[in-house]
Amino acid sequence: MTTNYLTTRAISHREQVCALYKKAVRTMEAYWVIRADVRYQAVMMRHRFDQNKDIKDMRIAVKLLRDGEEELFMNQHPIPFQYQYSPGGSAYGRVPYKPDWLVDSWHPLEKASYPKYFAQREKRKDEWVKYWEDHYNKGQKFDDHEPEWHGNWDEKLPGEKVGLDPHKKVKPHHH
């Protein structure tokens, strides 16, 4: 099961279980208000997941997964919790975002009204392209096609991706 609008690849069983767990915890965050309650419920949920982690028979595993998804669906919160600046949150999109490239789409006559600004702008754009070529695209020709998709990055856990042992205690870093 996937909630993506367009599924472009096969999703592994492991991913599905992880997604289910994440959604279950999110749903519990919507139901319980106090942080301690949420953590307690999350631990209980983790325990439920851990009970079945060693099942090798895929038929049972898939059935468990489907049952879990059913349970999640039946217990979803009518007013799901959402952070304020996320889509669906209360303050989402209050300050309108005006993309910078809109200025590039001006008509030449309009641009001619502000000759100094646009001369400066073209200069800065060239400088930025040069900077990017130098720093991130060394030796290669600049190409505006998207790079080809190699492999599946989501398959790996974040710890594995950077080559760390996931069980090793990592000092949490602050944003």
């Binding site: 919790f81 959402q82 952070y83 304020q84 209050r94």
Partner: peptide
């Protein structure tokens, strides 16, 4: 609360 209105936040 930085314009958060939710009691859960």
């Amino acid at each position: 609360e930085d314009s958060s209105q939710d009691f859960r936040n």
